[in-house]
Amino acid sequence: MTLAAATPLPSDRREKGHLAAASALLTPATAVVAVMLVAPLLLLLRMSFNRFDPTKLMVEAATAENYTRFFGDAYYTDVMITTVVVALSSTAFCLLFGFPIAYRLARWQSRWKNAVMLLMVLPLFVSSTVRSIGWMVLFSHGGVINLAATSLGLGTMTLMQTTTGVIIGIISINLPYMILTLQSVVEGIDENLEQAAESLGAAPARAFWRIVWPMALPGTMIAAVLCFILAMNAFATPVLIGGPRFHMMAPLLYWEFTANNNWPFASALALILMTTTLVMTVLANKLILGRQARA
C-alpha cells in the first residue's frame, strides 16, 4: 500500500536486469494470487449474471436482475447500511481508543515494553468465535453486566442481540491491529520534533496536532482502512453476538449461498460488498490524504 516513488534507473541494461530479477521474485506469489483469487473472482462475476431457478438452481444467462434486485429492495440496502454503520463506528472507536494507547506505548521507556507489546499481539490470535463466547458471558440475560445492572438497580441490561454489542465485539477484535500499526507509526516520528515545537512555544496539544498528527496520518489511514475492511467482512461476530435478528452482509451472502442455494444472487452480494468496501476506502484515502497533500 506504500509502494509509490519510482527509483530512477541509470541505464537500459540495468533496467532489463531489474525486470528479470523482479519478475523472478514476483512470479510465484503473483501466480498463487492469480489462480486462487483472480480466477475465482471472475467466475463469481460471471455467476452474478446468471439466473436462479428454484428447481434447476442456476441457469446460464446474461441478466442484471441480481443487481437490480439488490438495489430495488429496501431490505438489502438496509443490511448494507447497517454493515457500513457498524464498520464506520467500530473503526472510529478503534481510532479513539487506539491512538492514546499506541502513543503512550510508543513513547514509553521501560524494560517491560517488549512484554507489553507481545501482550497486545496475543489477542490477534484468538479467533473471533472464541472471543464471542467471552462476550456472551458478559452480555447475556444471566451475564455479568446484567447481573451488575440489576443489583445496582439499573434494571435489566443485555447487550446480546444488539447493534452496540456487535460493535463492541468488533472493536475488541480490530483494536489490536490499530494499536500495533499506530504504535510503529508514532515510533517512526522523531520525538525531538515535538520537543522542538514546544520549545518554540507551542502548547503540547498544538504540537501534537501540528507535528505528530500530520506525520501519523498516512499510517493511521492504513490502520483505519484495515479495521474498516475487517469490520465490513465480519462473519462470526454478527452471527454469534448479533443473533438472528441482526443482519450484516457477510452472513447474508453465506446464507444466500448455503440455505437458499441461490448462487447468482450470493455472487452479486459478494461483489457489491467488495465494491462498496473498495470505493469507500479509495474515497477516504483521496479525501483525507488528498486534503493533507494540498494543505
Binding site: F52, P54, T55, D73, Y75, D78, P244, R245, H247, W255, A259, N260, N261, N262
Partner: peptide, 19 residues
Amino acid sequence: ARELPAMSDWWKKNIEYKG
C-alpha cells in the same frame, strides 16, 4: 421444495428482520 427459497427469503425479511 420449490417454494422453499422464496419462503426462506420471506422469513428473513418479514420475521427475522422485523422483530
